[in-house]
Amino acid sequence: MNFILSADFWFSVLAGTTPVMLATLAANIVSQSGMFNLGIEGTMLMSALMGVLVSAFTQSLFLGMLAGLLSGIILSFALGYFTLYLEAPMNSVGVAINLFSAGVTVFVLTLITGSKVTSSSLTSLTFPAVHIPLIRDIPFLGRVLSGHNLITYLGWIFAVGLSFLLYRTRLGLDIRATGRNAEAAASVGIQTNRVRFKALLLCGIFCGFGGMYLSMGALKSFTANMVAGRGFLSLAMDTLSSSHPLLGWGGSLLYGFSETITIYLQLYSDADLKVISAFPYIFIILVLVIAQLARNLLVRRKKNIQLKGR
């Protein structure tokens, strides 16, 4: 277990956290506005592919990024359109987005590259790694904090920015009011649908970056089903953090930690692979249960205090 003390380990924890963190931010903003996006998984997958394809064909990172973000936003808006205007249940639309993306990405990939599995025959671009000038020279922390992919740092900025947006601005107040009680919000003049679409716009952007981190950052090509459940995990993180972006960041760090430790354990121990792979999920469900129980206890205690105060 010596690896826990190494800088490489903590570096991989932060790197492994990035996609889940971005997905969690997407889940946070959507559920703050009172919706539930089961389609984050598929949205990320589509962005991952589009970013790779467009960057490969135009050889422009900027256009690739734009395509990835745009496809994320389009799929998120599709969720909004079908649930808000055509009154479809959110779960079903989310499932439809996932099925659509899972199949269509493979369809497009096969047509363009001839391979069902990977886009490695295309030379696609990747987001650069960033070395932060002063921090990189700090002995241990420098190796942990510096040298990450650009999207990782963007994600950190997003997490802080999103919590500022939600709790310190007018739009954030509108979003939270809509999420609490859409009818009450509408009655005081908030255009709830417009507010929800703004939330979905941010969701699409976060999903887009999350997906592109996988195919244009962590790896250099797209592989089929490369999101591998991270979109679903983000929903667990969202519940865990009761939709607070900074807590969500903490929750996804927990996932990054358990995922990385799983990878390291598989390298260094001879226990069965499958059991170790189940570890993050068991861990998360335990934390989820404990957090939720504690929260219930807190609510009950608050009620008791209020009763006594009367």
Binding site: F82, P89, V93, A96, I97, F100, A102, G103
Partner: peptide, 19 residues
């Protein structure tokens, strides 16, 4: 590729679900 059916799955679910 056989995944062309995914278009159908996505569209059909969304349309049937939309009340």
């Amino acid at each position: 590729p056989p995944e062309v059916v995914a278009f159908l799955q996505g569209i059909v679910i969304v349309l049937v679900a939309s009340s």
